[in-house]
Design a protein around this nucleic acid. Structure first.
Lengths: 339, 339
DNA sequence: GATGCTCGTGGAATCGATTACATCGACGGA
DNA sequence: TCCGTCGATGTAATCGATTCCACGAGCATC
C-alpha cells in the first residue's frame, strides 16, 4: 500500500508538504497542491489511520459496550449511536457483553487498548475495577440506559416512572389486582428501578407486590420463560405479568403458549421496551416505549462534548405507555399513542 | 498513560527487554521477567495497540459490513461472527450499510483506512469500484450471505433452493395456486436467487409466476407493506405472499392488518429467514430458516484462513423449511422442524 | 588456552504519519 | 539599498511499539 513517502516522491515534494495538503493547512502553493492531489489520485493513496492516530493521539473512534446485541432495543440504540457519531465525524466500535461481566470487561479492555477517544457504556453489573479505574483515569465516558451510581459520569437514560404509573392505572382499570413482575438483575439500575417504580405505582392503589410475584430474570428470553412457569405453578397465579424487557416478554409468551393458555384471557402481559414485533404478536403486546433513537443521539453528543473539552450533560427523557391488547380489552383507553 | 519506556525505566531494563517479556520471547532471564512484570503491574501498563499495529502491520481486527443491523438475521450473523473471531483472537468492527451503497462504501473505506486484517462483506449491490479494487489489491475478503459474481473471493452462504421447493410443495398441498413473491433488490444475489428458486419450484407444479405477482422490494419493512398493498389491490389478488426476508414479511403483516384482513384466511404468508418472533406472531409465520450461527462462524474461519495464508474455502449450507400456521392448517405437514 | 556456541541484553532503525523549527526568496516600507 | 515580514517548503523529531544486529559473559570442545 502506498505511503505518504511514495506520494511525496511522485509529486516531487517533501512528506511535510503532502501532509499539509491532506490536512488542508493554509500555507501551501496552488502548484504544490495540485501536484500532490494528482499523485494521490494516481497512486490511489489513502492515509494510514493507524499511523495518524499514533502521532495525533486521537482515533476519532467511540467505543460502545452494550449488554446484548440480540435485544432489539440495544440494536436500535447501537444504530442511532453510529448514525450520530458518523455525522460528527467519528466511527463506532461495538462490543457485545451478552449480559456477562467478564465479556464486558474484555471489550472495555480491548477498546481502551485501541485508544478509542471515548466510551459509551450500558453496564451489565455494578462496575468492575477496570471500568471504575478508566472513569477515574479520565477516559471520556457516558452511560446510556443503565448506569453506575457514585461514578462521575454523565448518564443518558429514559425515565419510566410515569409510564409505569400509567401502566398500573391501565391494569387496575381493567380489574386486575394480582400483578407480578419479571425483574432484571439487581446489579443493574434498570433492573432495580423498574421493580421500584412498579411497586410504588401499585402502592398508590393500595396493592402489594409480594415476593412470590417478584421473579428474578436476567433480561434474557430464557429467564422470562422460567419465571413465568414459576408464576403459573403458584396456587394463586398472578393475573398480569409485567416483563422488565422485551426478551423476557418473549420468554413469557413462550411459557404461556407451552401450557396451552391464552393471553390475556388466562394471564395478561405487559413489557418494558417497545419493538415493532409487538404490533404483530398474538395478541399485540402493551409496552412501555423508550425514545431509543433520541437516547442514542443524546449519548453521543454528550460523549463528544466530553472528548472535545465541553461539559457533557446528563439527559433524562420520558418513556411512554403504548396500550395494545395483551392486558385485556380497554373500554376507555389510557392510551397516549398507538404507534 | 504509561508507555513501554516508563515500564523499562521502572524495571531498570531496556524497552527491548520489556517488549520481549510482553511477547514472551524465549531468551529473557527469569529475573528480568519478574522485574518487568512487577513494573507492568505497578504502573497498570497496557500496550498501545495502535503503536503495535503500526509496527507489525497487523491489527488483529476484522471488518464486517452488513446490509442492515436492524434485521434480526444480520444481528444474529454479526453476533456469531464476533464470537468466533474472539475465539480466534480477533476483534470485529461492524459497519451498517442500511442497504445503501454509499454507506457501504463509506464503511469499507474507513475499515481499509484502519488497516483491518480482513473484510467480511454482505454486499448491498453489485460491487462498487472501491470494493472491487480492494479485492484485486489482495485484501483478504470473504462474502457472507450475499456475494458478487466474478470476484475471486470465497463465499459463505445458505442454499435455499431445496427449502423453497419444500415450501412450494407445502403451499400446493394446501390448495394454493396463485402464489406471489416480494423480491429483494435485483442487484443482490439473494434478491435474484430467491425469486429464481421460487419460479423454478412453481414450474415443477406447472404454475407460473406472472409479473403482477412479482413485487419489487428492498429488504426493508416499508417495501413489504407497499408491495403487499399492490397485491391486495389487484383484481385477482394472490392467495399466498412469499416475502424474501423477514422485514418485508413484517411489512406485509402490517399491510394485511391495516385492511382488516386475516392471515391465512384472506391471504397466506411465508418468509425467508426465520426469527424467534415468528413463533408468536398472529398467526405464527411459516419460514425458511438459515443456519445463521454456522454461517457466521464458517465465514470467520474462511477469512482467518486467508489472512494467515491458508486457502480459505467457500461454504454452502442448506436452509430448511419451518412450517407454522400462516399458510393455512396442515393435515399432514411437510414440516421438518418446529423450532 | 583459543575457538565457537548460546543466552541475555541493549542500541538503534523502523513503521507512517504530524508538526516545530529552520531556511530561503520575494516583497514592501523606510 | 537594506531590513523585516511573510509565505512556501524541507529537515528532522516524535508518537509507542517490534526486531535486527552487535556485544559480552559463560561454557563446552578440542
Amino acid at each position: 500500500m502506498a505511503s505518504i513517502k511514495d506520494v511525496a516522491a511522485e509529486a516531487g515534494v517533501s512528506v511535510a508538504t503532502v501532509s499539509r495538503v491532506l490536512n488542508d493547512h493554509p500555507s501551501v502553493s496552488a502548484d504544490a497542491r495540485t501536484r500532490v492531489l494528482a499523485a494521490v489520485e494516481t497512486l490511489g493513496y489513502r492515509p494510514n489511520a493507524v499511523a495518524r492516530s499514533l502521532r495525533t493521539d486521537q482515533t476519532r473512534t467511540l467505543g460502545l459496550v452494550i449488554s446484548d446485541v440480540m435485544n432489539p432495543y440495544f440494536t436500535e440504540l447501537a444504530r442511532s449511536v453510529e448514525e450520530e457519531a458518523r455525522a460528527l465525524g467519528y466511527s463506532v466500535i461495538i462490543g457485545n457483553a451478552d449480559e456477562r461481566p467478564d465479556l464486558q470487561d474484555h471489550h472495555v479492555r480491548t477498546l481502551l487498548d485501541r485508544r478509542i477517544d471515548g466510551l459509551l457504556l450500558s453496564p451489565t453489573d455494578g462496575g468492575s475495577p477496570l471500568m471504575l479505574d478508566a472513569a477515574r483515569a479520565g477516559t471520556p465516558m457516558v452511560f446510556v440506559d443503565r448506569w453506575i451510581p457514585g461514578v462521575e459520569v454523565p448518564v443518558v437514560r429514559a425515565d419510566g416512572q410515569a409510564a409505569v404509573r400509567d401502566l398500573v392505572a391501565h391494569l387496575y382499570g381493567l380489574g386486575h389486582r394480582r400483578l407480578a413482575i419479571i425483574a432484571g438483575p439487581a446489579a443493574t439500575t434498570t433492573g432495580r428501578e423498574r421493580v421500584e417504580a412498579f411497586r410504588e405505582a401499585l402502592a398508590a392503589y393500595g396493592l402489594e407486590l409480594p415476593d412470590a410475584y417478584t421473579g428474578q430474570g436476567d433480561f434474557q428470553a430464557e429467564s422470562g420463560r422460567r419465571v413465568t412457569e414459576g408464576f403459573l405453578d403458584l396456587a394463586e397465579p398472578p393475573e398480569v405479568v409485567f416483563a422488565a424487557d422485551n426478551l423476557m416478554a418473549l420468554g413469557a409468551l413462550d411459557a404461556v403458549r407451552a401450557r396451552g393458555l391464552r393471553v390475556p384471557d388466562d394471564i395478561a402481559l405487559a413489557a418494558f421496551d417497545d419493538i415493532p414485533w409487538f404490533v404483530h404478536t398474538d395478541p399485540p403486546v402493551t409496552a412501555i416505549a423508550q425514545p431509543t433513537g433520541e437516547l442514542g443521539r443524546a449519548a453521543v453528543r454528550a460523549l463528544v462534548d466530553r472528548i472535545e473539552g465541553r461539559p457533557g450533560e446528563s439527559v433524562t427523557l420520558p418513556a411512554r405507555l403504548v396500550v395494545r391488547r395483551s392486558c385485556g380489552e380497554t373500554p376507555t383507553p389510557v392510551q397516549r399513542s398507538t404507534t
